[in-house]
Amino acid sequence: MHGRKAYELVKEFASGEKGHLKIFNVEEGSNVNFWLVLSGCITRQRNLCKRRLNPVLAMSPCSVILHTDESGKFPESRKSSSSGAHCIVVPVIFYTPGMMKCLRGVLFLPFIWNELFERVIEECNEHHNALQSLIRKMQEEGLEVQTARTADHYGALIHHLSLIRNKRCLMAYVYNRAEIIRDLAWKVGLLHELPREIQEKFSDSEEQYFKDHSKSLKLYMSQLSLDVNVDMVPPKDPYIKVRVLEDLGSGIILSDKFANFARHSMHFLKRTDAEQYIARGLMEELTS
């Protein structure tokens, strides 16, 4: 069946618990930001197209398909000399409506693909090859590619739609994960370390995203000199009673006092100060 592989990723995402992350569907130990590398490479190629060739040839990433090497198979992983990580050579192909001119750029991904991602890419390759061969066939028959409505046209159309679909699924997968990560930054508190069991589910780019997001929010709040992450409901009393659940040490300075937060000690704190500790599970609120 066509265009089904990336859907499996989305399905897997949807089956997870709401607001929780699963392990990013790429094997651990990869140390390069795949999406950044890919989009960077594509932008480079587009600029090249624009400058040297016809500006019409410069395509947005929408039409870029990962491609295998000449043999049509996904190349074997190779050892890269510098980082010691595995490296896969993926030439990128650009195709255009008018002429099927191909430009190849070599993209190095020091990256080990997870099985599912690999299958998505494989499927994209198949679609791409089929699409290309159908268009070529139409050209050989002397038909105008843009206006002819032959069986080949509809075949190519189906392959094209499958590619678009796969792309949408992949985008949605990454986008929705990013949304969860943003959410985590707000809920757990900014610039704080996440617990290990959550952090190890991030891919590297997601980790960076989390850090950057927290950092820019922090910056924004310091410029406003306002903490936008506190509880939305105005308190009846600015002070609340809390109990410390874990030893926090004595070096913590709050806005109005300097306290020694030993385990099980009880304190009377400003609510805004206590909120971040409560969110992280280091204190609990006591009610009378």
Binding site: L184, K187, P195, E246, R280, E285, T287
Partner: peptide, 19 residues
């Protein structure tokens, strides 16, 4: 019923064992 308004973020799961 009343009760504590602020709570531990639910994404963190159950209480971890204190270190």
């Amino acid at each position: 019923m009343g009760g504590p308004r602020l709570q531990r973020a639910s994404v963190l799961g159950r209480k971890r064992k204190p270190i």
